[in-house]
Amino acid sequence: MYATEYVADNWILILVLLGFTISLISTVFMEQKTIRRLYALIVEVFLLSIVVFAEFKMDGMAEYRNLRIVLMAIRYSATPLLVAQIVYTVAKGQKWYLFVPAGIFTALDFISIPTGIVFALDDANKLVRGPLGMLPYFGAGVYGIYLVYNLWKRHTGQRTDTVPIVFFAFAFSSGLMLPFIIGKEYAQVFCATIAVSMFVYYVFALLQLTKRDPLTGLLNRQAYYADTRNEPENINALVSVDMNGLKAINDNEGHKAGDEALTTLAGCFIEAAKHKYRIYRVGGDEFVIVCRKCKEQDVQALSSHIHENVAKTKYSCSVGYCYSKTGSSSIDEMLTASDENMYAEKMRYYKEKGITR
Rank of each mutant, 00 (worst) to 15 (best):
G258T: 04
R229T: 04
F20H: 04
I86T: 08
L178S: 08
G267I: 03
V45W: 00
L98F: 10
A226C: 01
K211R: 15
A205W: 10
T210Y: 11
F167Q: 09
V166G: 02
L15K: 03
V241K: 03
K211Q: 13
E260Q: 08
A171E: 05
A223E: 03
L206D: 01
I42G: 02
V319A: 01
G217M: 07
G133F: 06
L238N: 00
M243T: 07
H307K: 15
V148M: 11
I74S: 03
L71H: 02
N66V: 07
I74R: 03
F172C: 05
K256C: 02
A266M: 09
Q94S: 10
R292W: 14
P214K: 03
G93V: 09
R281I: 05
Q85M: 11
T21A: 12
K312S: 13
S329F: 09
L24K: 02
L132F: 15
D339R: 11
R75M: 11
P164C: 09
C291P: 06
I331W: 07
G144H: 01
L98H: 12
K95S: 12
Y2S: 05
I14Q: 10
P232T: 06
M198Q: 07
Y146K: 10
K95E: 07
A311Q: 15
K95A: 12
V52T: 12
I14Y: 06
F29T: 12
F56M: 06
V16L: 06
Q297N: 13
V16P: 00
G175L: 03
C268H: 04
G19W: 05
D123Q: 14
L81H: 08
H305G: 06
Q158D: 08
E31T: 15
S26H: 12
F168Y: 12
C291H: 04
N236W: 02
P179A: 10
M58G: 00
P131S: 13
D339H: 14
G254Y: 02
S330C: 09
N309Y: 11
V288A: 04
F53C: 01
E296Q: 15
V52Y: 01
P136L: 04
L178E: 06
Y225W: 10
V118N: 07
L18D: 09
E44P: 00
D298T: 03
Y343Q: 14
P214T: 05
F105L: 15
E296M: 08
G327K: 01
G144F: 01
F204I: 07
N234Q: 10
S330Q: 11
L38A: 06
E260A: 03
K92Y: 12
V290L: 13
F99D: 10
M347L: 08
D339M: 14
Q300N: 06
A195S: 07
S328Q: 11
A237K: 00
F119C: 00
P136S: 13
T160N: 06
N250M: 06
Q297H: 13
A107F: 14
I181C: 07
Y225R: 15
F190I: 09
I35H: 01
F170Y: 10
S77Q: 11
M72L: 15
L17N: 02
R348W: 05
N244W: 01
V142S: 05
M334W: 08
F269E: 00
F99A: 09
V196S: 00
E185L: 04
M198W: 04
R65I: 02
D122A: 03
Y277I: 00
A205H: 13
E286T: 14
V83M: 14
N341H: 15
Q222D: 08
